[in-house]
Amino acid sequence: MDGEPLVRWYWIGDHLGYLWGLLADHAVISLVPVLIGLLLALPLGLLCTRFPRLYQPLAATFNVVYALPSLAVFVVLIPYTGLATQATVMIPLTCYALAVLLPTTVDGLRAVPDPVRQAATAMGYGPWRRLTAVELPSAVPYVVAGLRVAAVSSISLASVGALIGRGGLGYLFIDGFQRTFPTPIVAGIVLVALLALVTDGVLLLARRVLAPWAGRETAVRR
């Protein structure tokens, strides 16, 4: 890359539409899996809290999936879901999101203080109604904390999809690398970071709206 400047601004100017398209694709393939993960984690979390024996096997399964390298999973999926399709990238990302969100949801549901749980029972809540009316809302700060971790990691992992032809902004890294042309790489990094920042901000805002009764921060493991 001798003599090549880090950023050639004209390239960016010429490719605004192209960059926007990649950004939109990246947002879809990284964040839709988090959303699906959330929609699965909530009922699974409720089930695991109601029937605690389910939790360990389920959590272990998703942990194993989480340990698998994303590229390997993409490649394994190609024969079934096709090369360069959204599904091939989004299925593993959904599993990763779930691996983060299931434990945080269960932690949140279990974090309801004992006196609160007992009071709810004594007021005449049945087990399911108590879960959805008392424990689930109380879990919101935990779930949002989990969402923040899952979303940012999904945004970063989605780039890997570029290696099988569907990676949103990740394509810019391959492109720049192959042409020893750093401008797309820099643009990609900046856009990925921006996407992560905006997503995180939206989640923080959602938390303030959904759980105004909670403190500023809730720690999350992982």
Binding site: P115, A119, A122, V134, S138, A211
Partner: peptide, 11 residues
Amino acid sequence: YVIQQAGLFPH
């Protein structure tokens, strides 16, 4: 029913 730590619903 009233208990020691009140057990109010925090949300």
